[in-house]
Structure formats: C-alpha cells, structure tokens
Design a binder for these strands. Structure first.
Lengths: 326, 326
DNA sequence: TGAGGGTCTGCAACCAGTTGCATAAACTCT
DNA sequence: AGAGTTTATGCAACTGGTTGCAGACCCTCA
C-alpha cells in the first residue's frame, strides 16, 4: 500500500506538502502541486480515508436507514441518495431495520461513530428517542415530522385529499381507509387528511388498521372492508394484496370495489388493473435529504433546522371507477 | 467524544489494557476486564472504527455493487447481504452503477481502500478488468463466472431449460428469447441453455436482443417478436413490458402469446396475468456471497477460490398456456 | 528455595494522514 | 535599501486505537 510518505519521498517534498496537495491545494505552489500529483498518479496513491477521518473527524460516510430495503418504495430513494452523495464524495451505508424500532435505534447508535450523518427514512422510533440520538449524530428525517429537526416530508395529505375527492366525485359513499403500521407518520397524515376531507364532503370514512405495509397486510384486510365500495390503501403493496383478496372473494376491481394505492412504487405500473395511486417524489426526497444532511454536517452542532415539504399527486389509472348504484 | 484514554484514566489501567479488553479479552484478567467494561459502559465509550482500521488494516466494511438498486431483483439480495454482514459486525456500502461499466470500475477503485472486500453483482466489466481489480481488493462475484475467482452463481440455465420444456410441452413451436444487456453472464447462460434445449427438442428458437433489462426494454421488443407464440424474457420487468406492448397491439397473454419471465422479483406476484417465471435464490446468494467474502478476507491474498451454484426453478402461473392451433 | 513457566500489565512505537506554528524566500512599497 | 507582507514549505505534535516486547508477579515443582 502506497502512503503519503512514499509519495513525499519520491517527489522530494515533505509529507505535509503532499497532504496539502490533496486537501488544501491552494496552499501549495502550482508547480510543486503538479509534480506531486504526477508522482502520486504514477505510484497509484490514494488517500486513506480512515486515517483522514481520524484527524479531521469527518468520515465522509453517511448512513441511510430504512424500514425495509425490499419494500419497493425505498430503492428509488436509496438510489438517488447514494448517487447524489457520491457526486459529493460521500459514501453511504444502507441498513435495514426490518420494521423493528429496537434494531433501528441500535443501528443508529453503532453507525453514529463512523458516519458524519444519518438519513432516517420513515422512522418508527419515538420523537424522544430521535431527539436523544440527534445529540450523537446529525440527523435528517424523511417522512416524519419531528419538532426541532430537519425533515423532508412528502405531502401525502395533499394526495389523500385528492384521492377522497376523486372517490366522492365518482359517487362513492361507503369508503374505507386501510392505515399503515403504528408509529408511521405517513399513515397518520393520510388518516388525518382523508378523515377531514371525507367529513367536509359529508361522506363517512371507515378507518381500518393498523395493517402491515405489505401485500400480506392487504390480503388480510380484505375481510374487514366488506360493505364498502371504495378503499384507500396505505401503500401500493397493500392495495395489491387487497385486490388479490377481493378477487379471491369473487369481487372485481374496479367493478365492485374501487381501490386506490399510495406511493406509485410498482415497476412499470403494469398491473391489471393498473393502480390508481398517489405518486411520491422519492428520488427528489433522497437528494434533498442528502443536501440538507451535508449542510447540517458542515454547520456543526447548532445548525438551523428546516422542513421541506414536497408535493404529491393523484394518478388516476384503472382501479377506480364510478360507483354502481346500490 | 470519549476515547480509550478516558476509559483508561477512569479505571486506573493503561490504555493497552482497555484496548485488549475489547479486542483480545482473553489476554486480560477477568476482574480487570469487568471493571473496565463497567467504566466504559458508564462513560458510553465506543471504539472508534477508523482508528482501529488504521492499525489493523481492517475496516470491517464491505462494498456491495449492483447495476441498479431500483431493479427489483437486487433489493432482496442487498437486504440479505446487509443483514448477514451486520450479524458479523460488518457494515455495507451499497453503490449503484447505472449499468455503466466505467462507473462500476471507478466505484470499485474508490471503494477498495475503505472496505475489506467487495461484492460484485452481475458485473458488466471485462474478466480482465475484474482480475486486475482482484489484486487490489478481495472480490466475490455474484452471477458471473470469472475463472480463478470466487463466484456465487444462480443456475439460471436449469430454469431456462425447464422453461423451454414447459413451452414445448404446451405445443409451442415458434418461440422467441429476449436477451439482456451485453456483458451479462446471466443473459449468456439463458441463451445457451435455451438454445441447446430448443435444438434438442427440434424446435427453432429466435434470439432477439440485446434488450434493456427494464419494462422499456420489453415494451420496445413487442414489435420484434411478431409471429411467435411464446417468449422467454431476460427478466420479469422485460416480461411485463412485453405484455404491455402486446396488449397495446391487441394481443392477449396468454391467449395469443405465452410469456415467461425470469427472476420472480415482482412484489406479490399480483400481476394480471400472474407471471410464469423462474425463481432465483437472491437472498441465499447474498448471504452466501457475504460468507465467502469474509472467508476470503480472513484468508488473505491467496485464498482458494470457490464456485457455488444455487438452484433455480420454474414457477408456472398464468402467463403461459397451451398453444392454439394455427 | 530457586529455577522455570504462565499470566497480566505497562511501555512505546506505529498506522496514515492533518494542521498550527515557524521560517525562509520572494515580492511590494516607499 | 530596508521594512513589511505574502507565499510556500518543513517540523512536529496529534488523532484513537493496536501490538511486540519486557518485566512484575504468582504458582508449581524438584
């Protein structure tokens, strides 16, 4: 392994000059710099990040924690965050909590010492715990509102209201909402927005939940929405599971029941029927979160916190239609 | 930040004793060890991995490189690898190459200095380049056969043969194969196995490709398979795209054309029609690859290389049916 | 009782960088 | 020409751990 000292020796300068060539180029004479660079390139020198981290206290790594990598909602966010970070010379650790708050906390704690900041996506932890962790490591939260912390929110309430309007407009009067896991901010937002809007429209809304945020969750919920003509689901997976369950029970979608998903995460939107759903700006959220996190890292302990709210919108496809008269 | 020296001071022993308490417990007296541990816990001490990496040369990090995080084939592998690594006290960097070999090489090179080993999934690089990289960092390859390197293969040929048998058994005589991107080992394997088996059965096989490994790729291929009654696709996304394209052209699946996907990566298998496909042991491959990589890391430079071949199998669902008589 | 051996701990060098400080050289200005 | 400033480089301490070596202590056995 070739170190800074090898480069220094080979180019006849002191190690500090080599160091500055890479980390503070403006402090070294252009000619010297070029010479050092040439030698370094020839020797195949690459700065050792661990050593650099030791003195600077900056690892140039970020942590990214999601509930479930295999949930199709997250990969686009991960992808965007990772790519964006890389452009800024940061690498990202990705970890999966399996929807387990205990594991989530543990992960943040072990990660906190070897990253400059952590991106928490849809955390299930209590606000109190999150605040405590914030003292250990810069944090940016995605899809959860935590007072005093920097957060990136996807305004799912906006989409949920549009979804209710859409259903009411189609003549549905027996609408159900399948909520997500307890502790999910998104689920709370949806519930709040949907309930309010339904009330405004004078239409009852049956809230059913909590449900697992998976097809299993949707499948299991099929029994619980009997008598309803339209269902808004916590996410697309749940919607697919629900449709599966309804079909098993001899009901057709959208013929007998209209179904709306949330997050538009399914590849190709090629399901039959194509799902009416609410699109979420996941990639944008990932990039934005990285930017905010790096800003927080740069600003140190008492950086001002921000809340960014990104828009969502209803995409009408084939899983909803006009209510049949009873 | 509390360091080893703080712990040493607070517990009245030398730093080296504290160090050994954590990294070589058998060398320190049980009573001392307990005392140090107690103090460390009380102070909230956590070993600094960067510092440890500096002296030991082990970062306890792994790199995981995939073509596209958002391709649903990869997340289960990533999830399994990450979880498995974590249980072994390793963290994993996940990076995405966007199917770009240049970026892939660059990523491996920048990552190589800060990880103990790299997991390469379905690399698009040349064997020669891969060998050169192997000299810099331990490598385990998933889904690509590289002579002299440790590889984990999913035996997709086995599944492809079963797929051809299935189609031929259903009476299909005009079968097409949509291949994947150039440089994909999997695509080559499928092609080889499918071609051989079709020849054995005395049925012609039209090979169409390369295609992008996405729905777009499948969609675009819909024009190129006119006159065929059955199509085996490089992956499920391509199959979905193809089905979409066929439907747009007024053809039904499986009524007019039978379609088989590969990888069984779609959530919930809830598409209409449900896709007949070849299941891939992605999670098992991820875990296996981590095991092999850690073994290679432990064994040093000249570790023996292994090839592990995992089974795949055909899952028959609804997108294939008996050929209609012409 | 003293040699031999094992166990435990401390000392100090080391890993690969960074950075505050000092100094020398070159330049600017009057 | 000399004082003052700027620029470029070297020196050495420092980051937070690890580890080879040496020595102190205790135990065992002849």
């Amino acid at each position: 392994m070739v170190t800074i000292r090898d480069v220094a020796r080979a180019s006849g300068v002191h190690v500090s000059t080599v160091s500055r060539t890479f980390s503070a180029p403006h402090l070294v004479n252009e000619k010297t710099r070029q010479a050092v660079l040439a030698v370094a390139a020839q020797l195949g020198y690459r700065p050792n990040r661990a050593a650099r981290a030791l003195t600077t206290g900056r690892t140039h790594n970020l942590g990214l924690i999601v509930a479930d990598i295999a949930n199709p909602f997250f990969p686009p966010l991960i992808k965007a965050a990772q790519g964006h970070a890389r452009e800024r010379d940061y690498h990202v650790f990705v970890a999966d909590t399996d929807e387990d708050p205990v594991l989530e906390q543990e992960l943040i704690e072990t990660l906190s010492k070897q990253v400059d900041g952590v991106l928490l996506c849809s955390p299930r932890l209590s606000n109190q715990t999150i605040h405590r962790l914030r003292a250990e490591v810069p944090l940016v939260i995605v899809n959860r509102r935590v007072k005093g912390l920097t957060t990136v929110l996807m305004d799912v309430g906006q989409g949920a209201r549009a979804a209710i309007d859409h259903l009411v407009g189609l003549g549905h009067r027996r609408i159900a909402l399948l909520t997500g896991p307890p502790g999910s901010w998104t689920s709370g937002e949806i519930r709040q927005a949907a309930t309010d809007r339904a009330a405004e429209a004078g239409v009852p809304l049956t809230v059913v939940g909590p449900n697992e945020p998976t097809e299993q969750g949707g499948l299991a919920a099929a029994d619980k929405i009997a008598g309803h003509s339209a269902v808004l689901c916590y996410n697309d997976l749940v919607a697919l599971g629900l449709i599966e369950g309804l079909v098993e029970r001899g009901l057709s979608v959208p013929g007998d029941v209209s179904v709306i998903g949330i997050d538009d995460s399914l590849p190709g939107r090629l399901n039959r029927p194509k799902l009416t759903t609410i699109t979420m700006p996941t990639a944008a959220a990932g990039r934005m979160a990285v930017d905010l996190l790096l800003a927080a890292v740069g600003a140190g302990e008492h950086a001002p916190h921000t809340t960014v709210r990104l828009e969502t919108s209803l995409v009408i496809r084939e899983s909803t239609q006009r209510a049949s008269e009873p």
